[in-house]
Design a binder for these strands. Sequence first.
RNA 1: GUGGCUGUAGCUCAGUUGGUUAGAGCGCCGGUUUGUGGUACCGGAGGUCGCGGGUUCAAGUCCCGUUAGCCACCCCA
Length: 414
Amino acid sequence: MSALQPVRGTRDILPDEMRRQRAVIDIARETAERYGYLEMATPIFEFTEVFKRTLGDTSDIVTKEMYTFSMKEGEQITLRPENTAGVARALMSGGLSQQLPLKYFYAGPMFRHERPQKGRQRQFHQIGAELLGVPKPQGDIELIALGAHILSGLGVYENTKLELNTLGDTDSRQAYRAALVEYFSDHSDALSSDSRDRLERNPLRILDSKNEGDRKLVAGAPVFSDYLNAESQDFFAAVKQGLERLNIAFELNTRLVRGLDYYCHTAFEFTTDLLGAQSAVLAGGRYDGLVETMGGPATPGVGWAAGIERLSMLMDRDPPVPRPIAVIPVGQATEEIALTLTQKLRHAGYGVELGFSGNVGKRMKRANKLGARAAVLLGEDELANNSATIRDLDSGEQELVSLDAVIEHLARYR
RNA sequence: GUGGCUGUAGCUCAGUUGGUUAGAGCGCCGGUUUGUGGUACCGGAGGUCGCGGGUUCAAGUCCCGUUAGCCACCCCA
């Protein structure tokens, strides 16, 4: 371990990458606002209890992935591994349940102590949307439509597919779960050790096992659709119909499950095969039981989250690099006027670089390297006429303009 | 957390069966051009060969440990 390298699973985000991530966030936020989802933020850490209660004591996140600290006062706090719990907590702390329905958008860092891989870091960043207080499938449809809209705005929609499943309501799910447990218990000696573990904690997950032997067993396992009651079937049918109406293509994937008890009805994942094992790009579902689990009033909810780094890797273009105007004083005598002109241009809305030192050649070189669009040269000749030379750095053409007209002339380089 | 692969200049990589001052391209700096960048030519800087230990007369090259990245499992965004 060297103190000079970033902690495992973290990294510095330098301007080129930051610009991409910024673009992801900006496009997502603008799109979300069109749907009425307004940006909000919850703290980066919460009392550990907030996550324990919502994610459950047996989830992987709670049992081995949380960054938890003990405070002097003896309280346990945890760096948020996801944001939905925080939003639900905010709903209660702020008495927001009086204002339902609520639509929120967020973006920020999350922390999970996992083994890093490409597209998987210990500090990573997510955007997400939550819709609280809408029990109807219209909510699920709007939320998925928002996700699809953002993906297409980023140019990654083409490289994803939407996988869709239903977990039914509580009755349906519990009946199915019981049937699964019974089935797999009868064949437990044939299960992989991973799946025997899942049988205890999260039997639905066995359906998604990659183990050969497990897959054979799964092929003969009870099927969820046989356990869905009429309401659950209607709900799912409505979601599918809404997506079809919006021309959002999806594939049914009966192995797509969520482990936690409060998840119900719709579960969905936009996945890609361009990121290796990290296929989930934007994923979510309905969580009608969550707020109640935390001790709040029964409040239906749907939401999704998406990894900003993953989206950035998939984004089909580089956001444009801003091109400044370079102000270049020629000779000592013009330094002062260059300084005041620079500041004037900045106030007028231009990005301006005033080299700190060097002769004209060096400053021009630097201007070029910065990608400057134009250079404003201030020399004694120009000053004698109360003017400046404006050089177009793309075409190489330049002209002499009066100092008063510089801002006006630069307008074309905006 | 388990298993595997990898780690040489800022970046991408080459380094032959262990053998004298560790190389290239790009990038960076300087010069040709002290009032004009991008091209070209010339020159230069920059490496405890991830880190620590071991084997050996001799290790970038072999062995062990460790750390980081990557791949798969796991989990997920």
